[in-house]
Design a binder for these strands. Structure first.
Lengths: 253, 253
DNA sequence: TTGTTTATGATTATTTTTGACCAAATTAAG
DNA sequence: CTTAATTTGGTCAAAAATAATCATAAACAA
């Protein structure tokens, strides 16, 4: 029995029952529990299922193109809590930027029914919001296969044409010293979107706070708010810079 | 037993069973397992099957991207024949425009393994070609939910920045009198792409030939070639206007 | 013919898959 | 809040499958 065959069965079972535990799957498939866990980890990283403690559950209507692999497997819970908090900030009529990070992607599920305009350079975001109440504007240019997004000078110009009320952006690192990006193109994309937004939120889980990677591209005062599950000494520095620090709600489910 | 003969058998077996292991195939074909593996590798790289550890399975059995609602249901065979003929015109290194019609969409399956650049305003095309050998450039702007594509002035400007070697475009109607579109935005999109291409192909099944709908937006001499399954009196008019008429091969399957 | 390419099979080394075990993390219970 | 039970991710080892290399035989071209 290959992984592919097991995946089919697992999806079928989860589709029927909504959720299952590892033991049940192990029995059903005739493999050990550890193999089940590995399968689930793999499937979750492709976004096919939600992993729970001791099993897995259906991910609502998220059967999306397989090619759109996202890194959302790590820290799903923290990210979802952050995004739910972020969604509370969005009101009807808003025009918002969403960038191509894995955190910002998960924001989509919480804004599907809102009557807003979303401008994005992320293909997963487009696919997630396509056909919903949200009106979409896609930034054009060459597609970066690895990041499933559009960057570059053409994209910058496109962004410069629009003006949004809010921007929800991910980041590779943030500390009292400023904002950090893993690549130049991500940095300039963040800058461009920030410039065209009245209010900028950074969405980042705790692992990004205090991390000072590769390229510092802006000071803290570029942004207006941080939404995070982090709580620690860095928070004070943020607030001293005049940034609102919004804590994600602990109790999500 | 040649590779071609074995491929036929393998496809047949996989089509029946959904999946097989190497030993089974080796027995069935009377060759060693290593030969089977080599065959499978070759077939998988052409996209005919999906390889698993220890065997192979049907491509359709994998989680299929929920392809966009497209009108491709009608005239599939004719359209596929047309598109196969069109794919023969494409050579490595080409930069091509593909527009948002349902016919042009079906061209994707035949060009997945080609090393070319595709510029398009169609979301289904992007999803179909994403993750393949094709390098993608997406035209930006507001997404038209109904047509799953991007039109408008921003899109026009985007197109004007690029220059392609060939364009493969659909159409609502074509006759000796010229080219016809169902909406103004489709017409201007076709014009913009044509203008930036060295050579323009119109893909149209027989039902579109002789049809003169809504808006005539250009004369025949705008385009260079028509690929169609139509054969009739109109053909002569096309050829008199200096247009190559490429007939799709009748015998496709 | 002779030399070259191509297809096939055998052998060996590498990779992948799977399960067991254990420390760390998470959840549940008192 | 602390403790106990469960779950998880990591490392290791065994088995299976694969890729790489080489040798042989068949097909092909000069």
């Amino acid at each position: 029995m290959t992984f592919q065959k097991r995946m089919q069965k697992i999806l079928q079972i989860i589709d029927e029952l909504g959720e299952v535990d590892n033991r049940r799957l192990a029995d059903e498939l005739g493999v050990s529990e550890i193999t089940v866990r590995r399968d689930l980890a793999r499937m979750a990283s492709d976004g096919h299922i939600y992993r729970t403690h001791g099993g897995a559950m259906k991910v609502e209507q998220l059967i999306k193109p397989v090619s759109f692999v996202n890194k959302t497997a790590v820290n799903i819970k923290a990210k979802d809590e952050i995004c739910k908090r972020a969604a509370e900030e969005i009101v009807e009529g808003d025009i918002i930027f969403i960038d191509c990070g894995s955190t910002a992607f998960r924001l989509c599920q919480f804004i599907k029914n809102k009557k807003i305009k979303v401008i994005t350079n992320s293909l997963p975001v487009v696919n997630e919001l396509n056909g919903t109440a949200v009106s979409l504007n896609l930034i054009g240019g060459e597609i970066d296969q690895k990041r499933q997004a559009i960057h570059g000078s053409i994209a910058q110009e496109h962004i410069a044409r629009y003006r949004a009320s809010k921007a929800f952006l991910g980041i590779d690192g943030i500390s009292g010293a400023g904002l950090f990006a893993g690549t130049e193109s991500e940095a300039s994309n963040t800058l461009a979107m920030t410039k065209q937004s009245s209010y900028t939120y950074i969405l980042c889980d705790a692992s990004k706070v205090g991390k000072e990677t590769y390229l510092k591209f802006a000071d803290l005062n570029l942004i207006n708010a941080i939404i995070t599950d982090y709580s620690g000494p860095e928070t004070e520095k943020f607030e001293l810079s005049g940034i609102r620090v919004l804590k994600s709600s602990k109790f999500f489910y």
